[in-house]
């Protein structure tokens, strides 16, 4: 049982959902982004998704695109991801990485998995790698005891859901809607259907991401999912100025949400 599944099970035993916060490394600069990840942990995130910025983020909306482009202009490196992972682990949350696959391929899947484990990371979410194209990644991750977290979407067929659940470790990442990252006025019913379909296919832990930005939305998702994933809303709260106080306020709102307090 991995550190990630253990933590998710403890949280379930508390009768609530986990709060999983995403931030890109290097936005608005490397040291502020790492300080911001510590703020996530202090203000109530159980798991932190550390995102190495990538030049062509096809699954991201304008907020995260802007943050990634800013970080790349500042010269962020993949090495900084492991530094951030280490900081999150020291702050007491479970670190996972969310990375587009070319960064992992260029480093080498084996080396990426090993360096992540050495930094204290628990798993990797792969937005553009599915189990059928990711067989060599899965092998490398298993060897290093790194969880492979795959996405399931509202469009995912029954057959593909089985494939996804089978290959996932830690949790299954249910995307709440058809679309890219970014805040939405409402989360919609699709999320609940994806979670139900994943559970039916045998998933033990399912977390919901895309579009969640308020405490009320988090509270709603927490009624049927094991975790609530929040990205754009945190990036936006912090902004180009790196406002960590505003970030803390936003995190507290979502942390209350996953506890059903709105």
């Amino acid at each position: 049982m991995s550190a990630l599944t253990e933590r998710l099970d403890e949280i379930r035993a508390e009768g609530r959902a986990a709060l999983i916060g995403y931030l890109p490394v290097g936005y608005p600069d490397v040291s502020t982004s790492i300080a911001a990840m510590r703020v996530l942990v202090e203000a109530g995130c159980d798991v932190v998704e550390v995102g190495p910025p990538y030049s062509d983020p096809v699954l991201d909306g304008p907020v995260i695109q802007h943050a990634a482009a800013t970080a790349l202009r500042q010269g962020v490196r993949v090495d900084d991801t492991f530094t951030a992972v280490n900081a999150v682990a020291e702050a007491g949350a479970v670190p996972v990485v969310m990375s587009y696959c070319n960064l992992m391929i260029q480093r080498g899947y084996e080396r990426f998995a090993r360096e992540l484990r050495e930094a204290g990371g628990a798993g990797v979410i792969t937005p553009d790698l599915t189990p059928d194209t990711g067989a060599d990644w899965i092998d490398a991750a298993r060897k290093q005891d790194i969880d492979t977290i795959f996405l399931a979407a509202p469009s995912t067929t029954r057959e593909r859901m089985h494939l996804t659940v089978e290959a996932s470790r830690g949790f299954v990442y249910a995307t709440s809607l058809m679309g890219v990252t970014g805040e939405r006025a409402s989360v919609g019913d699709a999320a609940q259907h994806v979670v139900a379909a994943a559970r039916e296919a045998g998933a033990e832990r399912v977390c919901v991401g895309l579009g969640v930005s308020t405490g009320a939305q988090a509270a709603d998702v927490a009624t049927y999912a094991d975790g609530v994933i929040v990205g754009s809303a945190f990036v936006k709260a912090m902004g180009d100025g790196g406002d960590l106080d505003a970030l803390a306020v936003k995190v507290q709102e979502l942390a209350a949400g996953v506890r059903g307090v709105v």
Binding site: T130, T156, R160, T175
Partner: peptide, 12 residues
């Protein structure tokens, strides 16, 4: 070659 895309697009 191959198909390195988000799961959401795989069915399409």
């Amino acid at each position: 070659g191959g198909r390195f895309v988000p799961e959401a697009l795989m069915p399409a």
